[in-house]
Design a binder for these strands. Structure first.
Length: 518
RNA sequence: GGUCCGUUCGUCUAGUUGGCCUAGGACGCCAGGUUUUCAUCCUGGAAAUCAGGGGUUCGAAUCCCCUACGGACUGCCA
């Protein structure tokens, strides 16, 4: 029995896909690729009331951004379509009816309200062997009674009939053996009164029909897995039942509980891959892409949350991940989300991004017109700041002074380094620059060194103010590299007292206008 | 409440056949170095009595039991 590996990611289009879902999709992808199998995208939209417009498109776009490609599914079709459950609607009922004929399911007429009342009135109420014979269903009504209600158009559901006193043992690829007594299971609804199957039926039928070999899904499904095993058994598919792997949950960074939609914006970081605007409430949620994350970094970070290669490697391309991934190295316990580490990964990837990509991002963020069209200039500017930023979105602010004269100066630097003699020192160096060759930062540095040496000046006393006048800031790339890039004209302009004096706050101007530069 | 799953530095984790573990790595934190500055980078440090308690064993983070704590599920939602 060496069937091809076929796994699926089966989200419900009820809103944006959060990172836990993305990780599930990623692990499915890695597992499929590692085993030379296929990954299928199936949309589980059997709940018409929870459908959210745009959610399906969001899922596709998010996964595409991450580099998770599907072999079959709603977008690219395939031999087992359609891949949207609402479009497979008619296919599920016969299976439910088959189960009724075999005595593994029954028709139930209890309304949602009646059930709710029972749950409220009786502690731990559930429809099972101990209660089903006092409910309104085909078991208690008999064939004639059931037919009569059906003929009258009474709404009904189809429930599985869970046997009492059996033990269901299943093998989970991550957790090992999991066993459950059927007595604690309840007669779950398989087919709803609106003509749609529930998740339980639809998922089992579709996984079987689509020849799914492994079901890799979140831990929240573990409690209902025994029910699914029973369904495979009753439907006669136990021999080809997929293997199960239940992934640990992604936990919130503070306190307890699983990561939820609202945690992100409360804690100040995204929980969604892409930005999302809820079409009903208008509420927006931030996304990793918009926050300036590189998809490679995002994927790398996510992959390591709940899985590890057993080596000390931290940085993985998608290809590396495919090669290294195995289900047996997936963690059992939930993983707490750590945004600081996500940032670190992003920095790592930012460091080896080609300059052209950085420049492209900068241009896209700043908009045309505000930046010089000189590609090389843009790339060099980005290259100089790349190790000083965490996000792509830091680029415009980090490179601003390459394109515009600073409008203000760092006040701490000003207080600490701006002395009475500073303007004179600047003027002295500035004069030497008039004839200098700006093409090479080292030449400029040579001139500077000679200047401070011959005049016996402490280099910091002039370098710091120089940087401030040139960039407005206290830190950044090497001063001479900046000068070389912005060129002689810009450098000299920014070093001119007529230019910088008006920018220096009043108290300090008072100091220095008394002693104009010599 | 019930059922199931889980529990190694603050966080992600190594440890999977019990001995090489005085528990390793990474993020973060602290200190020092490199750098004209910031960042990067380098070096070092603090940080887990392996949830607690019992066993089994010459020997347990690793096997067994109990307890505690946490989480998920408990819907005509997925």
């Amino acid at each position: 029995m060496n069937n091809p590996v076929r796994v699926r990611f089966a989200p419900s289009p009820t809103g944006p896909l959060h990172i836990g879902g993305v990780r599930t999709a990623l692990y499915n992808y890695l597992f499929a690729k590692k085993s030379g199998g296929s990954l299928i995208l199936r949309i589980e939209d059997t709940d018409q009331t929870r459908f959210v417009p745009g959610a399906g498109e969001y899922i596709t776009e998010a996964l595409q951004w991450c580099g998770i490609a599907f072999d079959e599914g709603v977008e690219n079709g395939g031999p087992y379509g359609p891949y949207r459950q609402s479009e497979r609607k008619d296919l599920y009922k016969p299976y439910a009816e088959q189960l009724i004929r075999q005595g593994h399911a029954y028709v139930a007429f209890d309304t949602a309200e009646e059930l709710e009342a029972l749950r409220k009135a009786e502690a731990n109420f559930q429809v099972d062997a101990s209660t089903r014979m006092r409910m309104k269903n085909s078991l208690t009504l008999g064939a004639a009674g059931t037919e009569a209600l059906l003929a009258a158009g009474t709404p009904y559901v189809i429930r599985i009939l869970i046997p009492a006193g059996e033990q269901i043992v299943m093998q989970d690829l991550i957790r090992g053996e999991v066993s459950v007594q059927t007595d604690i299971l309840d007669d779950k609804v398989l087919f709803k009164s609106d003509g749609m199957p529930t998740y339980h039926l639809a998922n089992v039928v579709d996984d079987h029909l689509m020849h799914i070999s492994h079901v890799i899904r979140g831990e929240e499904w573990l409690p209902s897995a025994p029910l699914h095993v029973l369904l495979y058994r009753y439907l006669g598919w136990e021999d080809s039942m997929p293997r199960f792997a239940h992934l640990p949950l992604l936990l919130r960074p503070d306190g307890n509980g699983k990561l939820s939609k609202r945690d992100g914006d409360r804690l100040g970081f995204p929980v969604f891959p892409l930005k999302w605007k809820d079409p009903h409430t208008g509420e927006t949620s931030s996304g990793y892409r918009e926050a300036g994350f590189l998809p490679q970094a995002f994927v790398n970070f996510l992959a390591l949350l709940g899985w590890n290669p057993g080596t000390e490697q931290e940085l993985f391309s998608m290809e590396d991940l495919v090669n290294a991934f195995t289900l047996d190295r997936v963690q059992k316990a939930g993983a707490r989300f750590d945004y600081e580490k996500a940032k670190w990964f992003n920095q790592q990837y930012l460091k080896d991004l080609p300059p052209a990509v950085l420049a492209g991002s900068l241009a896209a963020q700043t908009g045309s017109g505000r930046l010089p069209s000189n590609e090389v200039f843009l790339e060099k500017a980005c290259d100089l700041v790349r190790e000083r930023i965490t996000f792509l979105t830091d680029l415009p602010e980090a490179t601003a002074y390459f394109f515009e004269d600073p409008a203000s100066y760092d006040s701490d630097m000003l207080k600490k380094r701006w002395k009475d003699e500073t303007p004179g020192l600047i003027a002295g160096f500035s004069a030497l620059l008039e004839e200098a060759d700006f093409t090479d930062p080292e030449i400029l540095e040579g001139i500077f060194k000679q200047y401070v040496e011959t005049n016996r000046i402490n280099s910091g006393a002039v370098l710091a103010p120089l940087r401030m006048l040139l960039t407005g800031r206290a830190g950044g790339p090497g001063v001479f590299q900046i000068m070389s890039l912005i060129g002689k004209e810009t450098t000299l302009r920014r070093l001119n007292p007529a230019h910088y004096l008006p920018i220096i706050p009043d108290p300090l101007v008072g100091n220095i206008t008394d002693r104009p530069p010599s």
